[in-house]
Each structure stands twice: as structure tokens, then as C-alpha cells.
């Protein structure tokens, strides 16, 4: 009796010691403290740069103005983009580049490789996937140099001399003749390995019992892929599609190295890069380039939202409702 009374007293004393406001402040602070390192990283390396880019996009900052004589121009840069003669062709190029690379390679080929290599003996599947990772391990410059050697102008190049020549096909300047073919191939061979790894692990983590159940229920191989594996890959499909769309929208180094945007292969991110940071005349239009980049971010955000909607993201993260029998 006396013991429990003293416990109550001690508890009340404790309450007095930590008034309620103070306790709630503490409960707010401690999670913040745990998240602080991540928050600082995100703020310094993502949030502040975005704000700076957005701010620069509202100025006329360029090599001509330097860092001292620039002035705010409000939405002039965006108005310029809207009326620029290059805008539509570059936008069309960008969408074509992203859509084709994504559909044919980064998702399509990745899915095909993942399905094939999980249905052959484990070791050979593993070896094949390891080989497909090589382009990703190769430095971009070396990788593109190799492609340039493959597609070199007539009469040189592996294609002209060794592959198509013996078949009697006359030599061509391949890059100018088929610029998109090579832009998509070079990007796709690298890009497919990402989805390949994700899809493979997703397929291999499907419980074995599902596969057995599908077989016993009467699935052929194709039906098993159609009714079981693909539906169960919805999460990784959403992830890879979204991630690769954003990554393709902003990637330009392959195109830069391969064609420098010639032969009608200029894409939005390359345009922004050339305007803002690297062009022949040496007049770097930072303000205009920043506006181009901001538009790209906007396109990316819209695409991501569309995907989430299309894949019914809300349903994917829905909580199950379980009740006892």
C-alpha cells in the first residue's frame, strides 16, 4: 500500500518536473534530431540548388553580364522559350528519345532479359546478366568511342567493313543516315541493365509456391508471365518507368559524345547544357539555360504524377484490412 502510494507520488513529482508543453516540445525535437543529417543533405544539395536555378531563370545572367551587371527580367526567359523556333523540334526530339529508349530498352528489353534469364539455368542467366552490365561499367567516353568506331563513316567502321560489307550492302555514313537508331541503341544498351537487375530480383522473389500453383492451375509458360509475373511486377515497373523517364529526360552525355546534337538529335537537356555552359560562341546564357532546366523539371514532375495515377499508386500502398475468421 505504502509502496504504491510512493510510486504515485514519484510519478506526480515527475509530471511537475516536466510540464506538458516541454514534453511535447521534446517529442517534436527528437525525431528532428534523428533526421537532421538527411535533412541537411537534402536542403544543401537539392533544395537550395533548385531555388538558385529558379532564381537564375528569372534573370538575364550570362557571360556578357557577368555576376555583377545582371538584372531581374521576370518571366522573359520563359517567354523566349515559348516562342523560340527550336522549342517544338527539341521537345519532339526529347519525347521521342525518352519514349523509344524507355519502351524498347530501359523497360522493354530489361523485362525480356529478366524473364529470359530467370527461365534458363541459374548460372547461364547470371553470366548473361553480368555481361549486359559491361556497358554500364565502361566509362561513357570509351563506350561512345567504341560505338563511333562501329558506326564510322564510309568506308571505315566495323559495320561497313566487317558486318554489312561482306553481305554486299554498300557502305554508308551511318551516324548522319540513322542518327536516332544509334542514339537509342547507345542509351538503351546501358539503360536496360538497370531495369534488368530490378526485374530479375523481383521475379526471383516471387514465392515458389505461386509458380507451382500457376502450373497446377493450368498455366502455360506465356500465361504464367501474363497472369502472374507481370501483375506481380507492378511496383518495380512503376519504379523503373518513373526513374528511367526522369533519368533519360536529364541525360545527354551519350548524345553529346555521339552527335553533339547534330543530325536533328538535339534534346532538351542538351540544349540547356549548350546554352548555359558550353557553346561554340562562348556566350553562356545562364539565365536562359536555367529556365530551360526548370521547364525540364516541370515536365518530369508531371510525368511522375501521370505514372503514379496510371499504376494506381494509392492502391499499391493501401493497407490490408484483416479480420478474424
Amino acid at each position: 500500500m505504502s509502496e504504491s502510494a510512493s510510486t504515485v507520488q514519484a510519478l506526480e513529482a515527475g509530471k511537475a518536473h516536466y510540464p506538458e508543453e516541454k514534453a511535447s516540445l521534446r517529442s517534436l525535437l527528437s525525431p528532428l534530431l534523428f533526421m537532421a543529417p538527411a535533412i541537411i543533405l537534402v536542403v544543401v544539395f537539392f533544395f537550395i540548388p533548385v531555388v538558385i536555378v529558379l532564381a537564375i531563370s528569372l534573370t538575364d545572367m550570362s557571360t556578357a553580364t557577368g555576376f555583377n551587371n545582371w538584372k531581374w527580367v521576370q518571366f522573359d526567359n520563359y517567354r523566349r522559350i515559348a516562342t523560340h523556333p527550336n522549342t517544338l523540334p527539341v521537345l519532339r526530339n526529347t519525347l521521342m528519345y525518352v519514349a523509344l529508349t524507355l519502351a524498347l530498352f530501359n523497360v522493354g528489353m530489361a523485362l525480356v532479359i529478366a524473364l529470359l534469364t530467370t527461365h534458363v539455368p541459374r548460372r547461364s542467366g547470371f553470366l548473361f546478366r553480368a555481361l549486359w552490365l559491361l556497358p554500364r561499367l565502361t566509362p561513357s567516353v570509351v563506350y561512345i568511342m567504341m560505338w563511333k568506331y562501329v558506326a564510322a563513316d564510309a568506308p571505315y567502321g566495323i559495320l561497313n567493313q566487317h558486318l554489312l560489307g561482306p553481305l554486299g550492302i554498300p557502305p554508308t555514313n551511318w551516324l548522319p543516315a540513322q542518327p536516332w537508331l544509334f542514339v537509342i541503341l547507345t542509351n538503351g544498351f546501358i539503360g536496360a541493365s538497370f531495369g534488368m537487375v530490378i526485374f530479375t530480383s523481383a521475379i526471383e522473389s516471387i514465392p515458389y509456391d505461386y509458380m507451382v500453383a500457376a502450373l497446377v492451375d493450368g498455366c502455360s509458360l506465356w500465361q504464367r508471365i501474363r497472369y502472374l509475373i507481370l501483375p506481380l511486377l507492378r511496383w518495380p515497373l512503376l519504379f523503373v518507368t518513373t526513374y528511367q523517364t526522369l533519368s533519360l529526360l536529364t541525360s545527354f552525355e551519350q548524345i553529346l559524345l555521339l552527335t553533339e546534337g547534330q543530325f536533328g538529335t538535339e534534346v532538351w537537356s542538351l540544349w540547356a547544357y549548350q546554352r548555359a555552359l558550353s557553346n561554340y560562341w562562348g556566350n553562356f546564357q545562364w539565365g536562359f539555360g536555367a529556365a530551360l532546366a526548370a521547364v525540364l523539371v516541370l515536365i518530369g514532375v508531371v510525368m511522375a504524377l501521370v505514372y503514379m495515377r496510371y499504376f494506381q499508386f494509392n492502391q499499391l500502398v493501401q493497407e490490408p484490412k484483416i479480420e478474424a475468421l
Partner: peptide, 15 residues
């Protein structure tokens, strides 16, 4: 698929 078998698993294996 041609054996006309029904199977019940420990893990239920419901799709």
C-alpha cells in the same frame, strides 16, 4: 496443366 489436379499449399499461394 493436363493432369487435372487441385493443389492446396501451406502458404495458401493465393494470387
Amino acid at each position: 496443366k493436363n493432369r487435372n489436379i487441385g493443389m492446396v499449399f501451406q502458404s495458401y499461394a493465393l494470387y
